[in-house]
């Protein structure tokens, strides 16, 4: 072993310290990556579908002769004759040229809700957007149902996902630690992790699947009560969109946390299952 290797190895063990444990079973890793791939395509094709009618409403129908819109991304003409992209949220209007409502270059502007880089295909093609969306919707829902029922039976949800009373009690400390990027690498998820995963897996995932189904006129015939549950097809469409936005926020925080907590260790654990925990410290040593 060369000097350099030795130094690096020592550095690594000092940094990683603790025991390497088997943290994620193969089922967890498989569903994680199935969801990651499916959600990537669902997001970009979903924005393509949204662009076909970039306005969201509350209620059973879309108001053309009355106003029940809650969000809209459209190009509008200014008083001086120029055109800008505007995003209207609950009656508040924001100029969002370049991002929402109007994007592309100054010479060749594109009038569309989300910009080309955020949609699949990049050009406007609702039919293909739907083809992609429904393929990955089947994949996503199948992975979710498999995960949900097997995790319910195996106790994974109760043991690892649902926060315990102790987890709730330690939540303020857990939040404080996360905000300071102070991570405790343990075999189990901490309270904030459990709460976040519970919200994503047991709330947002089912909700985004169910509101998706509630937009299907065929399913509306089969389960009309479903529409009442969400307050009408257009409300379901808005909830579907909000779930998407929440998942995007989750994804960003998720990736930031992985980078902050140590991308090597985190990536290894979700790819191979093996995770290096913090060394057990009986007493704190000064630096």
């Amino acid at each position: 072993m060369s000097i350099v290797d030795e130094v690096e190895s020592r550095h690594a063990s000092a940094r990683d310290g603790g025991e390497v444990i088997y943290r994620h079973r193969v089922a967890t890793r498989l569903t994680h990556w199935t969801w990651a791939i499916a959600l990537f395509f669902l997001l970009l094709s979903g924005l393509q579908i949204f662009n076909a009618h970039p306005t969201l409403y509350i209620g059973k129908q879309s108001g053309f002769e009355f106003d029940n819109s809650v969000l809209s991304m459209r190009p509008m003409r200014n008083a001086d004759g120029s055109v800008d992209g505007y995003t209207t949220v609950l009656g508040q209007r924001f100029k969002t040229t370049g991002l929402f409502g109007m994007s592309g270059s100054a010479e060749n502007p594109s009038y569309r809700g989300f910009p080309a880089w955020a949609t699949l295909p990049s050009y406007q093609d609702l039919a293909t957007g739907r083809v992609i969306h429904f393929f990955f919707a089947w994949l996503f829902a199948a992975a979710f149902l498999t995960w949900f029922f097997s995790s319910l039976l195996s106790g994974h949800i109760r043991r690892d996902i649902l926060p315990s009373l102790d987890d709730i009690k330690s939540l303020p400390r857990s939040i404080g630690d996360h905000l300071r990027f102070r991570f405790h690498r343990e075999s189990r998820y901490n309270g904030l992790q459990k709460l976040t995963y519970a919200a994503v897996l047991l709330l947002i995932f089912p909700l985004i699947i169910l509101t998706g189904l509630a937009m299907s006129p065929g399913m509306n015939a089969a389960w009309p009560w479903f529409l009442d549950l969400f307050g009408g097809r257009q409300t379901a469409r808005s909830i579907h969109f909000i779930c998407m936005a929440l998942l995007v926020v989750f994804f960003i925080v998720h990736v930031v946390m992985i980078v902050a907590a140590g991308p090597f260790n985190e990536m290894r654990s979700i790819l191979t299952g093996w995770y290096r925990t913090d060394p057990e410290k009986k007493e704190e040593h000064g630096a």
Binding site: A52, H53, Y57, Q61, S62, N220, R233
Partner: peptide, 12 residues
């Protein structure tokens, strides 16, 4: 009935 356009809007 509610008419649902593939674009995403609905009209009763």
């Amino acid at each position: 009935t509610r008419h649902d356009c593939v674009e995403g809007w609905s009209c009763i």
